[in-house]
Amino acid sequence: MASATSDTTDPTGAAPATGLPGPAAAPAPAAGPPSDRTPLLSTASNALKVVVVGGFGVGKTTLVRSVSEIRPLNTEETMTQAGQHVDDNSAVLAKSATTVAFDFGRISLNEETVLYLFGAPGQERFWFLWDRLFAGTLGAVVLVDTRRLADSWYAIDRLEQHGTPFIVARNDFGGPRYTHQEIRDALDLLPHVPLVDCDARSREDGKAVLIALVRHLHRLVTGQVH
């Protein structure tokens, strides 16, 4: 099977789950097989999606891990049929299987609502599966490393074309300190798109990034963006 991504996580190297205390962390029913899974509340009924997108090594998995109540899990989607939407370069692949890997975590927000966070590679070859995977997503966080800003150009183009609302988060790797204006110029960001700073290893920063995204979405929905 052709593997169309190199963005995989080593599940064995992941940190242990930082499960929230409370009912969400209740053990699995005794009849079940041994498992380190943290089940959702039985009342969970509405799951939402947010996608963290960015180049390889930019800190997507780290950000997901910082805020998730479960250890990030890795999975994949496979496209096996010909005749799906593919660009000309991948016409050959369309006849066999094309696979993209992505990871995810989750946050139980209340008794009914769960927010799933997906870490998705920003490369071109990932995007033909975007609709299949992320239709109905609330919005996206484009995570950038200022030493490699160009890695995020393609993802930003596609999000804009697609009409998926997003914010940009600079993950601080201690590189040169560009001003926000310099970063905005380099990314050609529209004025209303928020740009925030974070350390993806910090839970508080991860929360702040998600809050910035949801506040942005709220402004868009309520028409407060000019």
Binding site: L48, I107, S108, L109, N110, T113, L115, L138, P165, K207, L210, I211, V214, R215, L217, H218, L220, V221, T222
Partner: peptide
Amino acid sequence: LPDPTVLEQVLVGLR
């Protein structure tokens, strides 16, 4: 776009 009340619930949950 999503319903503003859903977004408000998400904000409360995140905070």
